[in-house]
Design a protein around this nucleic acid. Structure first.
Lengths: 334, 334
DNA sequence: ATGAAAGCGCTAACAT
DNA sequence: ATGTTAGCGCTTTCAT
């Protein structure tokens, strides 16, 4: 692998002149062609480690997410990557398996790789590495969740409002015994809040027996749906607050020969490709992942290029309810 | 951010002594504690760019895959990452969206990042970057597919044999008009081959009207299943050779009110979490992703640590048929 | 427009 | 065991 020195020797030019050729300085045309000829023979590639050592820039962005099992995450990652590639930036993708310890480790790894910026779907734990990113003037944008007490910019969805809308919708269809399976993280608790608002708005009592809070897993979807059924004989609908939870919910209902939507109505979140796999297709909340991904990159690049400071702006996108066939209309008595 | 020089100044030691502290040389205990005290005050982090510039090593491995939409890919990535983390290596994950142009670009990016090794799920195109990896003594392991004419090690599955087994199974259940939806890439054509072997073995004629070859997409799954139905009125079973194709197949059958398995039996590949979403659950071929991921890392690290040369060994794992409820038993006339 | 030279932070001989 | 020093490949003043 050739270096700048090799090219300098080959052409008889100074190394700094050759460097200027690559970094867009003005060169005598004669020397320009000399270098270009050398390039044909020498197969030169700039050494990024050397360049980074000198400039502290890498033109790459770290993307850090819990895992690749949820299609919301993989879709938004894909959108981010495409946008980044278009802007001639590269991405380094890491996962932390929902484990704050590994999250800190990966945060460290990306910091050590000297990424220019970071798109982070955080666990919620505040790591000291986060402060170092700020100190070293790295640009950070959070997505899907916010981090309280920090002034990070974040790209999120109107979780609370859309869940309230969901309750509206279910109530309009005649449901009053509506269960919810959610979790403790930001999105989960926002959705729970919307659920409560919705019920209150319609004068329906909030019953703890209808609320299940656990983790974002198929396993918990199964267990919580099961327990919801045994505790609430009059249950007619359930909101499963993630793709995994909804998968678990559908699974257990199928096993128990409980029919959707005749016996129980089900609505999910973020089902993307698989919402139409079941029979009937699942009504679900969908987030505008492509726009969100694009927005994340826009913010990041603007920060990097204009050196904008962190102000903690929240960019909130509107999710929508994709109405399919998993909600039953219950005729009301007069 | 402190450097080795800062620590050297703080402790009064030479910079090389401090370097040795981090790289495991022998130090006087007295000096060791001096450095450790300095560390408490100085918050030092080795500059990886400088270290790489000097040593040409990064302790990181590139993982390059087409995309994150298929759960086979995300599962095997997860397995690779876990194994790598356990061995104190890091991973840089990139996707190329099934586009050979972007594949070359990402190959380049990872090479420029000076990864020590590469786990690649290749598009099939031979890029010049691949030769550079070899030249620069990077360690490569392919997975899921092989690259003809190269002597890269590869970790794959017995695609042909398992599909032949699948045909065996279907024939035993009384099926003779068996369609297949597959694609042109390595795994797709291997599976097609197994399909043909299976039919021949049972003395069943191979009919082109039962074979559909396209891309690995939900869209193609829908279209090809549709066309299979119209062209083959006596069709009783279909093999969908990927998760996406199977999703499309199930979708269109549902829309057309064609019942699985009473009207048509369906078997898929790599359905992982979602095989039990449908009613009935889908019988599918599953690959041992965890073992495969572990094996990929083992080979890679052995190569790196022992500087083993490329010999083109094929590591072939056995897939298995997870029999669920999407295949009907057809009673045979005497 | 071009060149000389310093230095980014580190490792690894080599000398002591 | 510790220190001195050269140099990895590049960018960037500063002269010319």
């Amino acid at each position: 692998m050739a270096t700048l020195v090799d090219i300098a020797n080959y052409t008889g030019l100074a190394i700094s002149t050759v460097s200027k050729y690559f970094n867009g300085g003005s060169l005598r045309p004669y020397n320009k062609t000399k270098i270009e000829n050398a390039l044909k023979v020498l197969d030169y590639r700039p050494n990024q480690a050397a360049r980074t050592l000198k400039t502290k820039r890498t033109y790459s962005i770290g993307i850090l997410v819990p895992n690749l099992q949820s299609s919301f995450d993989t879709h938004i990652i894909t959108a981010i990557e495409q946008e980044l590639t278009a802007a001639n930036y590269s991405s380094i993708l890491c996962t932390y398996g929902s484990d704050p310890k590994i999250e800190a480790k990966k945060l460290r790894f990306l910091l050590d790789k000297q990424v220019d910026g970071l798109a982070l779907l955080p666990s919620g734990t505040i790591h000291k590495e986060l402060f170092e990113y700020l100190e070293e003037n790295k640009k950070i944008v959070l997505f899907d969740r916010v981090l309280d007490g920090f002034s990070f910019d974040a790209v999120i969805t109107n979780n609370s409002q859309i869940t309230e809308d969901l309750v509206d919708f279910l109530v309009m269809q005649g449901h009053r015994e509506i269960g919810i399976i959610t979790n403790t993280v930001y999105t989960g608790s926002q959705r729970l809040e919307g659920y409560k608002h919705g019920l209150i708005k319609h004068g329906i009592e909030i019953k703890e027996s209808l609320i299940r809070i656990g983790s974002w897993s198929i396993h918990d979807g199964r267990n919580h749906m099961d327990s919801l059924l045994t505790c609430n004989p009059r249950l007619t609908a359930v909101i499963a607050c993630s793709e995994e939870l909804c998968l678990g919910t559908v699974q257990i209902l199928r096993e128990k020969k409980i029919h959707i939507p005749d016996d129980i109505s089900v609505v999910g979140f973020d089902m993307y490709g698989i919402s139409t796999l079941t029979d009937p297709a699942i009504t679900a909340v969908e987030q505008p992942v492509d726009e969100m991904g694009k927005n994340i990159v826009d913010i990041l690049l603007r920060k990097i290029q204009l050196d904008e400071v962190q102000v903690g702006t929240i960019h909130c996108f509107n999710a929508s309810i994709d109405n399919r066939q998993s909600v039953r209309h219950i005729p009301q008595p007069y």
